[in-house]
Design a protein around this nucleic acid. Structure first.
Length: 544
RNA sequence: GGCCCUGUCGUCUAGAGGCCUAGGACACGGCCCUUUCAAGGCCGCGACACGGGUUCGAAUCCCGUCAGGGUCACCA
């Protein structure tokens, strides 16, 4: 390749980065790195209503977490480039290659409805307005959009993934909007200008953009821009129903559950609105209109009312996976394999290897379902093979997005110890959740009722009896470490003819409140004698 | 519905006319290990969507059918 490869990732800041976007970013990153080119980041914030500054930070943060570093020091924000766009649009207007269109939303919807009824596709072409009408509209400053007068002809192009012959024939081209009535350019216009400005050579994006490409090509031809190489990536699908995996899936699930909740509680949207302190009209609209979405805080409010936990929601956003305790390397490796593979049996690859092996030819054409089990397996493997020091860093990054965890108080040494004790863990969250009790005060421990029942009270309080026997034995231990504890407990087990399971489980419940923990003797050593005894005493008080 | 894309184990895929009795990974099942959850070891189950061609020979090429997906915005 003679010229330098320049790729870009151009998300719109409407929320956290989702896995589809991350995959697109990764492929763009890998292609650029493979050829020693540049990988650029641009923020497409032309949708004023939906773009937020918080989302920009969230996006950058997730990208950095993944290690997808971009090369431009200055971020490009489309919202700051209005002058540039307007100059070009005005020129297009002057040259008659674009025109103002005055239809209202309602009029367009009506026209589309008519077309649909007549079973033909709605194609927007320039309406024939008389000069008088035009002058009148102009003088009354009527709201308008600017549309591109797309030259009517066939638009076919070769896609680097899908092959030649992509596009549409002349009967299907229409005049699309390039400047919205609020004065902002549309995506179609801004991408074309910005990609040309940045000298983008390869555009990698989701297959949902395939047909948009004809608009972009038409614009490039009118503007005298070169056409980049297009590579449309297969879509990432939901494993359950095979529909496109999207950010809306969480909203969808919450809506479904909310509707069920209304039904089972025989209550009204008004009630839900009152309990969540959201506007009745908003709740009503949201419940019946799947296009409407709640933002994250609003979702949380609804979830707490209807009793839905965050962990019940499907992970879709990179941030969800991050919070759940996945390692970025595992995530990247898994994402890379979603629609691409190096050929052969190769699966485990470091980022360096991915860069070396990545080619557009290796990108597949069929859509892929997002298989969380496989991601989990990848994560488990990475966790097992990563150095202790690196794992501590990853754990700290995990805690940074899970600040409520008691482990947030732990020192690096303690974190390393937790990681070591839980060797073989799948997610950092597993380490966190199963070790929390070690960092809580004795009175913060909550006892899980089913664990208490099954392990302590069953068979005529067998578990409690063990604790009562063990308490003085442990109390007299002069040296408190896992070895001394183990031999004391083994001696007790031998005397009473009890297997370790019958002894370890009651102790586990006593100190942790549940049935899952790191290895028990090391846990007790870490906890210390005083706290261990205090927790056993709590169990032996009649109140429990 | 129109237009477009895709179709190999449950899932991600290897496979570019004979290397295929179709390989790998995850999942799943069984056994082993085990103080919990995991991890680990061994064994196993399991696919070329269907129907026609072309060819000495087809998972691989062609046609049709079916199925899935994408897209039809003043969202990107």
């Amino acid at each position: 390749m003679a010229n330098k490869v320049i790729t870009r990732f151009a998300p719109s800041p409407t929320g956290y980065l989702h896995v589809g976007g991350a995959r697109t970013a990764l492929f763009s990153f890998l292609l650029a790195r493979h050829f020693g080119g540049e990988f650029l980041l641009r923020i497409e914030d032309t949708d004023l209503a939906r773009s937020t500054e918080t989302a920009v930070h969230q996006l950058l943060d997730d990208l950095r977490w993944l290690g997808l570093n971009w090369d431009n020091t200055e971020l490009v924000f489309q919202s700051k480039r209005l002058e540039i766009y307007n100059k070009i649009i005005d020129d297009l207007l002057k040259r008659g290659l674009a025109y103002k269109a005055y239809e209202t939303d309602e009029e367009l919807t009506a026209q589309r409805a008519v077309a649909e009824k007549a079973k033909r596709t709605y194609i927007y072409r320039r309406p024939q307005l008389t000069d008088d009408q035009l002058r009148a509209y102009e003088s009354e400053n009527r709201p308008h959009v600017v549309r591109f007068a797309t030259p009517v002809k066939d638009y076919y192009f070769e896609d680097a993934v899908l092959g030649p012959g992509q596009g549409v024939n002349s009967t299907q081209v229409q005049d699309f909007v390039i400047r919205k009535s609020d004065g902002m350019p549309t995506y179609h216009f801004a991408v074309v200008v910005d990609d040309a400005d940045a000298g983008i050579t390869h555009v990698l994006r989701g297959q949902e953009h395939l047909l948009n490409t004809v608009n972009h090509i038409a614009l490039q031809e009118a503007l005298g821009y070169p056409r980049p190489i297009y590579a449309h990536l297969p879509v990432i699908l939901n494993p359950q129903d095979g529909s496109k995996m999207s950010k809306r899936d969480r909203d969808k699930l919450i809506r479904q559950r909310a509707q069920n909740w209304l039904k089972t509680n025989k209550t009204s949207p008004q009630d839900l609105a009152a309990k969540t302190s959201l506007a009745v009209s908003q709740i009503e609209d949201w419940l019946k209109d799947t296009q409407k979405q709640l933002d994250i805080p609003e979702q949380q409010q609804v979830m707490s009312v209807i009793g839905l936990k965050n962990t019940d929601l499907p992970e879709i956003l990179v941030h969800d996976f991050r919070k759940a305790g996945y390692l970025p390397e595992a995530m990247l490796n898994f994402l890379a394999l979603l629609g691409w593979n190096p050929g052969g049996d190769r699966e485990r690859m470091t980022t360096e290897q991915l860069i070396e092996l990545f080619t557009i030819e290796g990108i597949g054409r069929s859509n892929a379902k997002f298989n969380r089990e496989k991601l989990l397996a990848f994560n488990t493997e990475y966790a097992a093979s990563t150095s202790a020091a690196h794992l501590v860093q990853a754990f700290k990054a995990y805690l940074a997005v899970n600040p409520e965890s008691p482990l947030a108080r732990a020192s690096d040494e303690q974190l390393a110890k937790m990681l070591e004790m839980k060797k073989g863990f799948r997610l950092l969250r597993d380490v966190d959740e199963s070790s929390r009790f070690l960092f809580m005060r004795d009175d913060e421990i909550t006892y899980q009722p089913d664990a208490v029942e099954k392990v302590l009270k069953k068979s005529d309080n067998q578990g409690l009896t063990v604790l009562r026997d063990l308490r003085p034995i442990l109390a007299t231990l002069s040296t408190w470490n896992h070895a001394t504890i183990e031999s004391a407990i083994n001696a007790y087990g031998a005397e009473k003819q009890l297997g370790l399971g019958k002894i370890a489980q009651p102790v586990r419940v006593a100190v942790s409140g549940g049935t899952i923990s790191p290895p028990i003797f090391e846990s007790l050593e870490f906890l210390g004698k005083e706290n261990t005894l205090a927790r056993i005493d709590r169990c032996l008080t009649p109140a429990l």
